[in-house]
Amino acid sequence: MKVKKSTAFAFVVPFLVFFMAFWVIPFVYGLYISLHKYSFAVGRQEFVGLKNYARILAGDSIHKEAFYLGMGNTIKFVICTVPILVLGSLALALIVNELPEKVKKYYRAVYFASYSVSVTAVASTFVWLMKGNGGYLNNLMKKLGLISEPIYWLEKEPFVWITLTVATIWWTVGYNMMLYISALNEIDEQMYEAARVDGGGYWKTLIYITLPNIKSTFYFILMTTVIASFNVYGQTRLITQGGPGESTKSVIMVINSTILTNNNLGIGTAMAILMGVVILICTLGQNWLTRERDNL
């Protein structure tokens, strides 16, 4: 279709205006801020080059300590949640797929429903399910005689990690399951017919046909889940409030308090950029992995 170039461009302009204002400008401005000593309240003070980054990564500043603490906690969270979010969702998808056609959609809806609620609702609910004093789970376990003293699910390590993991899985595992289900439905029916003729049982079919066919979905889910878990904020902010001590303070919480509490916009922005780089490396690594495997 031949339309004037200016007409064609006019269709893109509204989006470009928003993209410039709310993505390009803050991105460039962020890089600029990170190269300066920059106070959140007072504003720009002086150009310091890469010193903000150096102070975060090396040396012995409080910023380095805070950043590494946040990174360590966040990585712990990633290790706790990712395996279950990636493999548990696959198990759910396989279960749903084998259910009788009539009831399938109800189970699928139940597993997916919790994805639609906000992290604040997840937090308030799990706080009252798991609270040390007056929480439902402790009341129940005491009554059943399983424990005599309450377990401090929100207040003590290692229990806080269990709470954060369970809450996160309840919240988001359904989304990955939906992605797996859609991938499973796209597998060519004929391959299964062939396997049936050859007399392959369920597990053989699963290993030789189903799993190889959803490989790229698996990598995609792995990547997006690692990134999502890396971005953890709401759960640690609201369920454990970073505690006990600062043992569950995530990177984003560290960035947040560096900027708002310590007033240090320069350092905080540099931390956010560093975190962005880590995530970007994950993305690229995953892309590379997928491409590499496909070539083999």
């Binding site: 803050p26 971005n231 970007l280």
Partner: peptide
């Protein structure tokens, strides 16, 4: 799409 949201979030807030 590739650059994580966290990078632009705080500068945009400051703006």
């Amino acid at each position: 799409m590739a650059i994580p949201e966290i990078v632009t979030l705080f500068p945009l807030f400051y703006i």
